[in-house]
Amino acid sequence: MLAYTAKRLLTLIPTLLAASILVFLFVHLIPGDPAAILLGDTATPEEVAQLSAEMGFDRPLYVQYFIWLGNVLQGDLGTSIFFRQPVLSVIGSGAETSILLASMTMIWIILIGLPIGILSATKQGTWIDQITSSGAMLAASIPTFWLGLYLIMIFSVTLGWFPSSGFPSLSDHGGITNLRYLLLPSLTLAAPNAALIVRLVRASMLDVSREDHVRTARAKGLHPTRVAIKHIFRNALIAVAAAFGFTFAALISEAVVTETVFSLPGIGRLVVQSILRRDYPVIQGVILVIVVLYMVVNLAVDLAYARLDPRVSLK
């Protein structure tokens, strides 16, 4: 296990470096003087010249990359053109909303996806299975923003049960009850992902149920529920755990849309607004942070997977 962890950590480094080169090149792919791009249209020629000298934009590209990487490693991701603030603190201000939204969504995915998936697999071939698995596929086919708009229509505009947009911080007035602002967004975000988990739990439970140890468990007369939960579901969970890296990527992607629909002050909406404002340092910073986060999550998932299923690390 230790050797496997070390190996996975070592392979992470080159991928991380390569990804950082791509993120670095992002600003250089935009036509024009990179210093002028990073400072925006309002910058004076003196400011442009000063940043150019600081970042070494007149020097070879690889030197510029190392200067940039050095800054990034010290937590300096540049300055936002729009906010006139360090990029890291701009991203930080959206972190609370995005992390809470992702956590609530994960809870929904587990609460909705796992039981329905188990039900679908244990009732394989019956009408319950047909309805749940077609229903899951239908849920995965709905554009998140469309679902979000209708949830707002029904629960905020017509019934008035939940707020339709925004999210005050938990430290603001209202405290923990402010989480009600995230209820509709997290349900919107959970719907397609819970649907994928339903399909996945069903498929991997059916796979496991064909294995010898399950036949033995049945043959020795164990109760079908006990077989389903202790012998099939527990083993099927390994494949489901492995898919959580993928779910995380989907969450990030769809959070961009969901945060825009519900006007949440999160990182997703920040990306969209920064693209529309041409605030390149922020776009670059967010991409970098998310890619690093995604890699770390994938590593954690892989290590958890190896722990759950020791056969993996022996390969």
Binding site: T15, A18, L29, I30, S253, I287, Y294
Partner: peptide, 22 residues
Amino acid sequence: MRCVDVLMAFPALLMALALITL
């Protein structure tokens, strides 16, 4: 395939957004 791995480190919509910016 290592290059593909690096590209796959970018979540789908985020990569689309980064490309669309350009």
